[in-house]
Simulated scan of single mutants.
Amino acid sequence: MDFAGAYTPDHFMFLLDGFYITLKVAFISIILSFIIGGIVGTLRYAEIPVLSKALAVVVETIRNLPLLLIIFFTYFALPEIGIDLGITLSAIAALTVFESAMLSEVIRSGLKSIEKGQIEAGRSSGLTYVQTLRYIVMPQALRRMVPPIVSQFISLLKDTSLAVVIALPELTHHAQIINGQKSTYIIPIFIMIAFMYFAVNYSLSLLARRLELKSA
Rank of each mutant, 00 (worst) to 15 (best):
L133T: 08
M196Y: 12
M1T: 14
K182R: 15
F72S: 02
E115V: 14
S203K: 06
L171H: 05
E212W: 05
A194F: 13
F153D: 02
D2E: 12
I28D: 03
V164F: 12
F195N: 02
T74C: 15
A56C: 01
I31F: 13
R143Q: 13
S109P: 11
K158V: 10
Q181N: 08
Y185H: 12
E105W: 03
I149E: 02
L133M: 14
I71K: 00
L162P: 01
S155A: 12
I166P: 06
I70R: 05
I70L: 13
R134A: 07
L213Q: 14
L67T: 04
F12G: 12
L68I: 15
V165W: 04
V50E: 01
F12H: 07
I87S: 02
A94K: 02
G180I: 03
A26R: 01
V57A: 10
I83A: 07
I178W: 01
T74H: 03
Y185L: 11
I187H: 01
D10P: 05
I81V: 15
A121K: 10
F34V: 13
F27E: 08
D84Q: 10
F19R: 08
R123L: 14
M192R: 01
L133D: 01
A93C: 10
G117W: 08
L85M: 10
L111P: 09
I70Q: 12
F72P: 05
L68P: 05
L95P: 04
M192N: 05
I187G: 03
E60H: 09
A54R: 01
I177S: 02
H174P: 00
V50D: 00
Y197K: 10
L51A: 10
A94V: 11
E47N: 13
I30H: 00
Y20I: 14
F72V: 15
L43G: 00
I193Y: 03
S104R: 03
L168S: 06
Y197H: 14
